[in-house]
Design a protein around this nucleic acid. Structure first.
Lengths: 109, 109
DNA sequence: AAAATAGTTGACCATTTGGTTTAGTTTTTG
DNA sequence: CAAAAACTAAACCAAATGGTCAACTATTTT
């Protein structure tokens, strides 16, 4: 299984996306993660492991609590695939370029 | 299951990403799709259905051949999630803005 | 009309996934 | 020390996934 499989697979779940959103740029004790649909702590741990194996988060044990930190780098890989596969992101960037060009000409006037 | 689940789930497979890449912006007969690892036509059809259910492709039957066309719109939804969840795309767009600003000033000189 | 091409469907199978419960370990706290 | 808190690991289960093959429909082509 390729790393993109792991990556997209990890993102293909409500619960796991919620965890990433909750962690954001900070860090959170594993037991503070709030699954959208209630589940046992063991269930939570399984999801955390999937995210970890996809490289999307790291765990650090301090005392008796495990702190989860999100790792954004792999997301770039996923976004790169989307971008490369079909130039729709290019269209978006083109649109921005046009916007900035207009602004630039407005500045000049 | 939410539509993002379907979307990321559809992308979480080598074979299906290959199909999307092969179709690109054009269209391709279903039987011309080339799975990375060889498989029966029935297998191919199952993958095509997954992509279809995620909204990533549409089929049109003309004569005896089914033409597959890729639908980029849902990808934007996926990319939007990535962008929203943590502002790393913003950094990228910022970088482009800086680039264009420099060009604009070069034009002015 | 007969044969080949293109696709679909259904039954089946093995593996993975998403969850549970129970029984642990380790680290704090009373 | 004893109890609570935070986590882990193993066994188990149902459902989904990724694949097969065989039988079938529909459309060309010869």
């Amino acid at each position: 299984m390729t790393s993109l499989d792991l990556l997209f697979g990890a993102l293909a779940d409500d619960t796991r996306r919620a965890f990433l959103a909750q962690i954001g740029t900070g860090e959170l004790p594993l037991s503070r993660l709030e699954p959208p649909r209630s589940m046992s702590l063991a269930g939570v741990i399984k999801h955390v492991r999937v995210l970890e194996e996809a490289g999307l988060l790291t765990r650090e044990k301090r005392g008796r609590t495990v702190w989860c930190r999100s790792e954004p780098a792999p997301l770039r890989e996923a976004a790169n695939w989307i971008e490369t596969y079909q130039g729709f992101w290019n269209e978006r960037l083109d649109a921005l370029a046009i916007h900035l060009t207009i602004n630039g000409e407005a500045d000049r006037a």
